[in-house]
Design a protein around this nucleic acid. Sequence first.
DNA 1: CCGAATCCTAGAAGATACTG
DNA 2: CAGTATCTTCTAGGATTCGG
Lengths: 123, 123
Amino acid sequence: MLQDVYPKLTLEIMDLVGNKWTLLLVYQLAERTQRFSELRRNMAPISQKMLTQKLRELERYGMVDRFVWPSTPPKVEYALTDLGRSFLGAASVICDWTRGNVEELAAARASFDAAAQEALSAA
Amino acid sequence: MLQDVYPKLTLEIMDLVGNKWTLLLVYQLAERTQRFSELRRNMAPISQKMLTQKLRELERYGMVDRFVWPSTPPKVEYALTDLGRSFLGAASVICDWTRGNVEELAAARASFDAAAQEALSAA
DNA sequence: CCGAATCCTAGAAGATACTG
DNA sequence: CAGTATCTTCTAGGATTCGG
């Protein structure tokens, strides 16, 4: 039965992609290993707190590796793991789907909103 | 440049799958056309409000069709559109990925949490 | 039966200030 | 440089009530 299998699964997926930054962060790290400050620039306007938090989450999921260079000033690099790259492969399918259907989605929304507007003015 | 293309895209994706119910609802409707009350049973413990809200969203995105039978008592059926089925194809790739890696993800979390715990007790 | 309207709360996310 | 700590704001989501 579908609903016995997917509830837990979808909740797991929400943890992975169900927020504003995670997917974008994975895409960013896919380009190359980056330091914290680089990431912050490239992910602007993300806050320090959010970036730290999302990086920890991804590290916890085994999708990102964290390398600390014990120097002064401190230097920390983040890189995608194999699991992270594997995830990116799957996630990019929806990204591509969305990109391929972005106009159709926009048209559907516009049509829906227009109908709602008309129903409103009819009343 | 990646970050010029994907921010808007990922936000669009968050609208689609970045919440607790949407993905599961699409999976549920993929099985067959269903009435509101059927859906509510099958999606338990979803609230009426959430179900209505998510159905409207999906309808607005052109992924779900809504058929009203003007009878007493009222009867309303919901069905996936072609676009909805197309989306399901893309979304199922992440679902399958997650299902295929659920143990690896759990192991990574356990390992991360154990390390954090150890660091804590060392202090 | 289907769903709109209202109220309420937990947790997500932002802003700011401070530290090794 | 790479965080942590704290405070505030915002919103998703649940509970409940009412209507056609």
